[in-house]
Structures are given as structure tokens and as C-alpha cells.
């Protein structure tokens, strides 16, 4: 009895404090760029810091999106991230399903799975020169398809593995029932397995989207102009030889967070279910 209440209270307070600290650490940068994006340059550096813009302005938004081509960067980012996600999820589901369900001689299921995963093991920087040479040879440098292909190469193994584990958690009898009921294997996949793997699809999609939306290194090397440059590259471009345009960087950076946040809100329900899907069966 004496142990009961107080120790539970302490535990609860401890949990809330931990969450609060984590939230401050993760959300402070977002808050800070949001606040800075509405300040005049002089206020950004004022000491003591201005927690909220005393004299709010849309000047930096105007500079970034009207005077400079950030709208085009954003569009490029959107096209590239969406295409990468679509291709990765479509082919990742099919490959994951094949690995989860089909019979392979000997240990080939493991070998193939491991081989797919192993492509993620080297640091991306290692592949940059070969990729650059390959795309140069194909005349694809500074094009969106080149970036999409490169991103897909990095996202597909990940999508395949994620979808494989979701399909493995689905009871196989459901697809067997569909096949005995008159469906083909493809039909069983399309009508039964895929709809049931929706949480997995949502989780895989959001991970692919975040990774390709935020990617910097490959885009930096493979793109040159606003024809194919993405938001992270555009933002980095405002750190120039003579000056760093913090206001524009904040305005563009804060805007770049918004689509991901919207998407995360939409798929949030699926995402939580998706992540815990394997752990709590049935």
C-alpha cells in the first residue's frame, strides 16, 4: 500500500518529464526556423533573442518564393519524392510478397533477401562517382529521372524488406482460400494480401517519402540547375560566398516541413498500426 500510489505518481511524472524534454529537443529547431522566417534580418541576431517576431514580415517568403525559384525547387522535390515513393512501394510490395511467400531451393530465400539488404550497407557516398559517371554517359545528369532512379535504388531494398515482413505476418490461408475460390496467385495478392497489408504500405510510403524528401548528397551531385534541383539543394544554395541568407533559409526550410507533416497526419493512424503490426499478432 505505501509503495503503490507515490511510486506510480513518480513514474508518471518521470514519463511526462522525459516526453517534455524529448519534445523540446525535437521541436525547438522547427519553432526557431518558423519564428526566424517571420523576422527582419536584424531581429534574427538580436541579443537577447526575440522568442516571437516583434515586427512580423513576409519579406523572406517573398524573396524565396517570388524572387528566387524556391517554388520550382519545391515542385521538383514533390515530383521526385512522390515518384520514388510510388515506384518503391509498388515494386517493394511485389518483391516483398515474392520473398515472403514463394518457395526457394535451399537457403536462397535468405540469400536473396540478404543480398537485397546488403545494397544498403555501404555509405551512399561510395556510389556517387559511379552514379555520376553512369548518368553522365546516359546524358541524364541534371534531370529529375536520374534523381528518381538513384533514390529508388536506395529506397527499394528498404521497401522490399519492410513489405516482406508485413506479408509474412499475414495468415497464408487467406490467399490459399482465394486461390481455391478461383483466383490466381496475382489475384490473391491484389484482392486479399495487398488490402490487408495497408498499414505496411502506409508505413513504407512515409519512410520512403521522408527519406527522398530530405535527401541531400545525391541530389547535390546529380543536379545542377533549377531544372532538377530539390529543396534541400536550393536551401543550401542560400549559404553563399558573401552572405548566408538566414531569413530565406528559414522561410524555405519551414515551408519544406509542411507537406511531410500533412502526409504524416493523413497516414498517422495506419503508421502506428503498421509499426506495431508485427509485434502484436491477431
Amino acid at each position: 500500500m505505501p509503495r503503490g500510489r507515490t511510486s506510480i505518481d513518480i513514474q508518471r511524472i518521470g514519463a511526462y518529464v522525459t516526453i517534455a524534454v524529448a519534445l523540446v529537443i525535437t521541436l525547438f529547431p522547427v519553432y526557431w526556423i518558423a519564428a526566424n522566417s517571420f523576422k527582419y534580418d536584424i531581429d534574427i541576431f538580436s541579443i537577447p533573442p526575440q522568442w516571437l517576431p516583434s515586427n512580423p514580415t513576409l519579406k523572406h517568403y517573398h524573396a524565396a518564393f517570388i524572387e528566387r525559384p524556391f517554388l520550382i525547387y519545391a515542385l521538383n522535390s514533390l515530383i521526385i519524392a512522390a515518384s520514388t515513393t510510388l515506384v518503391s512501394v509498388v515494386f517493394g510490395s511485389m518483391a516483398g510478397y515474392a520473398l515472403a511467400r514463394f518457395q526457394y531451393p535451399g537457403r536462397w530465400r535468405y540469400q536473396i533477401s540478404f543480398w537485397i539488404l546488403s545494397t544498403r550497407m555501404m555509405p551512399p557516398i561510395v556510389t556517387i562517382i559511379p552514379l555520376y559517371i553512369a548518368f553522365n554517359y546516359l546524358g541524364m545528369l541534371n534531370t529529375k529521372p536520374a534523381v528518381i532512379i538513384a533514390y529508388t535504388a536506395f529506397n527499394l531494398p528498404f521497401a522490399t524488406w519492410m513489405m516482406k515482413s508485413y506479408f509474412q505476418d499475414l495468415p497464408v490461408e487467406l490467399e490459399e482460400a482465394a486461390m481455391v475460390d478461383g483466383d490466381t496467385r496475382w489475384g490473391a495478392f491484389l484482392h486479399v494480401a495487398l488490402p490487408l497489408a495497408r498499414p505496411g504500405l502506409a508505413a513504407t510510403a512515409i519512410f520512403c517519402l521522408i527519406i527522398s524528401w530530405n535527401e541531400f548528397l545525391l541530389a547535390l551531385v546529380l543536379t545542377l540547375t533549377e531544372r532538377s534541383q530539390t529543396l534541400p539543394i536550393g536551401i543550401a544554395g542560400r549559404v553563399t560566398q558573401y552572405s548566408t541568407y538566414w531569413g530565406e533559409i528559414s522561410a524555405a526550410g519551414f515551408t519544406a516541413c509542411i507537406p511531410i507533416m500533412i502526409f504524416a497526419f493523413i497516414v498517422q493512424k495506419h503508421l502506428v498500426r503498421g509499426i506495431s503490426f508485427g509485434a502484436v499478432k491477431g
Binding site: 495468415p171 487467406l174 490459399e176 482460400a177 486461390m179 481455391v180 475460390d181 478461383g182 490466381t184 486479399v192
Partner: peptide
């Protein structure tokens, strides 16, 4: 299976 024209009742029922 689809061409065998058999129907199966599974132990787990396997309802969609």
C-alpha cells in the same frame, strides 16, 4: 487450384 473446381473449408475459416 483455380482450375480444379474444388472448394475448401479451412480450419481457421480463412474469411477475408
Amino acid at each position: 487450384p483455380k482450375y480444379r473446381d474444388v472448394a475448401m473449408v479451412f480450419q481457421s475459416y480463412a474469411l477475408y
